[in-house]
Amino acid sequence: MMLNLFSIFDPSTKFLSLNWMSTFIGLMFIPQMYWVFNSRIIYLLITFMNILWGEFKVILKIKFNLNNLMFYMGMFIFIMMNNFMGLFPYIFTSSSHLVYSLSLSLPMWLGLMFFGWIKNTKFMLCHLVPQGTPFMLMFFMVLIESLSNVIRPFTLAIRLTANMIAGHLLLTLLSSFIPELFILYLVVLLVQLMLLILEISVSLIQSYVFVILMILYLKETNYDEI
């Protein structure tokens, strides 16, 4: 019997302490491009990347931003593969830990802040006060905007981690409940399959939300660049 429900997210085991290496297992499932004739999986990946490029290109209209777009698309694939690999049995879910999420969001946010305040100081200062704010509320708006800017990497990390934990906990709770009646067993199995499909969509959506928010943060730091 499982005494601690959160033990499924424990990164340490008795025999092997290299569970974090599962972060890079998903990279081996990405199809390679060196074949003479592309397979259907490669065509599907290329189509998917073209759709992502079109979605992100609408937001990043500046040439400087478009040069950084391939980095964010690679990050999307990396996070998505980690979320997918966590759905397989006996594979450690690295995206369910704040260490993993903060290691992605915090360095990128710090880099964007350093770039924005050093290169576009005037624009970053103007961004703290929205257009049309009354004079009496400007001081409070600066505090609110500064606080919302500081907590951005933490909200990104907590959003990704909480969604991964919630789905895995539901799957674990349902898997521990095994009814004796065959009809109830089929019902539980059907609910588990529906939850698994939901988790697959959540893995895709959360990686998309993580990357799209980072792209929006990038756009806010160099909007006046040409």
Score class of each variant (00 low, 15 high):
residue 131 Q to A: 14
residue 100 Y to N: 01
residue 147 L to A: 15
residue 94 S to M: 03
residue 33 M to R: 12
residue 32 Q to K: 11
residue 37 F to Y: 14
residue 115 F to R: 03
residue 106 L to Q: 01
residue 63 K to G: 03
residue 141 M to E: 12
residue 62 I to V: 09
residue 48 F to H: 08
residue 122 K to F: 11
residue 75 M to D: 02
residue 136 M to C: 12
residue 109 W to M: 01
residue 137 L to G: 04
residue 100 Y to W: 15
residue 61 K to P: 01
residue 94 S to A: 11
residue 138 M to I: 14
residue 45 L to C: 06
residue 104 L to H: 00
residue 69 L to W: 03
residue 119 K to R: 11
residue 140 F to C: 10
residue 71 F to D: 05
residue 141 M to R: 05
residue 52 L to Y: 03
residue 127 H to E: 04
residue 99 V to D: 04
residue 147 L to G: 09
residue 90 Y to F: 12
residue 145 E to S: 12
residue 120 N to W: 06
residue 31 P to R: 07
residue 102 L to F: 09
residue 50 N to H: 15
residue 62 I to W: 00
residue 120 N to G: 01
residue 71 F to P: 00
residue 94 S to V: 08
residue 29 F to A: 07
residue 40 R to G: 15
residue 139 F to E: 07
residue 38 N to G: 13
residue 136 M to F: 14
residue 61 K to Q: 05
residue 32 Q to A: 11
residue 119 K to F: 07
residue 148 S to E: 11
residue 33 M to T: 15
residue 142 V to L: 14
residue 121 T to E: 03
residue 55 E to M: 13
residue 142 V to Q: 05
residue 35 W to E: 13
residue 44 L to M: 10
residue 39 S to C: 03
residue 126 C to N: 13
residue 123 F to M: 07
residue 27 L to A: 05
residue 119 K to T: 05
residue 99 V to H: 00
residue 31 P to Y: 06
residue 87 L to H: 04
residue 149 N to F: 12
residue 123 F to E: 14
residue 142 V to M: 08
residue 129 V to E: 02
residue 100 Y to R: 05
residue 146 S to P: 00
residue 93 T to I: 08
residue 80 M to D: 01
residue 53 W to Q: 08
residue 29 F to E: 10
residue 138 M to G: 02
residue 103 S to N: 06
residue 66 L to A: 10
residue 39 S to L: 07
residue 91 I to P: 02
residue 46 I to D: 11
residue 145 E to N: 15
residue 33 M to N: 13
residue 56 F to H: 08
residue 144 I to N: 04
residue 89 P to F: 11
residue 103 S to F: 04
residue 149 N to Q: 13
residue 66 L to Q: 15
residue 35 W to C: 09
residue 59 I to R: 12
residue 60 L to R: 01
residue 100 Y to D: 00
residue 133 T to R: 05
residue 43 Y to G: 08
residue 80 M to H: 03
residue 44 L to T: 11
residue 63 K to W: 08
residue 58 V to G: 03
residue 73 M to E: 09
residue 106 L to Y: 07
residue 62 I to G: 00
residue 59 I to M: 13
residue 103 S to L: 04
residue 136 M to E: 15
residue 102 L to G: 00
residue 89 P to M: 11
residue 105 S to Y: 02
residue 72 Y to F: 13
residue 45 L to S: 04
residue 144 I to K: 06
residue 47 T to H: 09
residue 130 P to K: 06
residue 70 M to A: 14
residue 127 H to Q: 08
residue 104 L to R: 00
residue 119 K to H: 09
residue 127 H to F: 06
